[in-house]
């Protein structure tokens, strides 16, 4: 991935969208689009921040064909579009050599929660499309409510820190492992701070025949509560604390793409920059922090084991 060469490519997500300053979503979207190197692509978005902020009528930031249907059905919607492409090509209504890629994008709400069934069905049916989850770990678009992706102990407006309850009581759902259970050709976890890794994964995902899934960590300035210039850093810390391991599963073979080794940072290094975890810094909540750390370590060991490490 040569950034100098990539910077000569056309931008297919235009300026003028109304995502928050420092939002990770357009960073990821741009990396995905650039990984296609100008190949035609149809993009579908589930309802969410990326969708509403890039297409406020009568404006659109998308220079690709783009569709939004509803919150929970971007996978099914794109499965329909991809099927239309196949049948229209079969029937000679589209030139046989015209290649079109299909990219479905959902947030964690639209992917881990309300859209999981639609996604699972689409993967099981084997449609030739790439699904990318941009996981900002809560329903940020509706005003920061907890999702099944929200990390343990994180405060949201539906899992607030009160006198009795201290943020979310459950651990984050391991969606990537759930998707891996579909045994599709390509599954990966990626982060926008490591664009080389993310874009390589996107290239692989677009290249395989059949469905591919990439889960990306997408730091959220207002939802996580950090300074807008720290988005890249929050993504890095999610990876270097091993909260968000970078790995890929090609034809059921797990591979770890990044191991911080001795440089693995404690989870507090990530938490301390974020308002949603502010309560974890208090001595009386040390138990929660320890529980969070223990869970992160346990998951990290599990991922390493899957990857034969």
């Amino acid at each position: 991935m040569n950034l100098k060469e990539l910077s000569k490519q056309e931008e297919r997500l235009e300026s003028g969208h109304r995502l928050c300053p420092g939002c990770a979503l357009p960073m990821i979207a741009r990396q995905l689009l650039h990984s296609l190197h100008g190949e035609p692509v149809v993009v579908g978005c589930a309802t969410g921040c990326l969708e509403v902020s890039t297409t406020i009528y009568p404006y659109t930031a998308w220079k690709t064909p783009w569709i939004h249907n509803a919150f929970e059905n971007v996978a099914a919607t794109m499965s329909g579009a991809e099927t239309a492409y196949r049948v229209l090509q079969k029937r000679g209504k589209i030139p046989k050599d015209k290649k079109i890629k299909f990219l479905a994008i959902g947030g964690d709400g639209g992917t881990y929660d309300i859209g999981l069934q639609s996604l699972s069905g689409t993967l099981e049916r084997g449609h030739n499309l790439v699904y990318v989850c941009m996981d900002n770990e809560a329903y940020q678009n509706t005003g920061i409510q907890r999702s099944s992706s929200t990390p343990f102990a994180a405060a949201t407006n539906t899992s607030p820190v009160g006198k009795i309850k201290k943020g979310k009581e459950q651990f984050k759902k391991d969606l990537t492992a759930v998707i891996a259970g579909h045994h599709i050709p390509y599954v990966a976890q990626a982060s926008p701070h490591n664009w080389v890794d993310l874009m390589k994964k996107a290239e692989k995902a677009f290249a395989v025949e059949g469905p591919a899934f990439i889960n990306t960590i997408s730091p959220c300035v207002p939802g996580w509560g950090y300074k807008s210039d720290q988005t890249q850093e929050m993504a890095r810390l999610a990876v270097d604390t091993c909260f968000w391991p970078l790995f890929e599963i090609e034809n059921d073979v797990w591979k770890l793409n990044y191991n911080p080794g001795d440089k693995k940072e404690p989870i507090i290094n990530w938490c301390k920059h974020q308002a949603r975890f502010r309560h974890l810094l208090k001595p009386e909540n040390k138990e929660l922090l320890d529980k969070f750390q223990a869970h992160v370590d346990e998951r990290w060991e599990w991922v390493k084991k899957q990857c034969g490490k």
Partner: peptide, 12 residues
Amino acid sequence: IEKAGNSKEYKT
């Protein structure tokens, strides 16, 4: 929306 990328008309 027929004009792809017309968000450029909106200056942020």
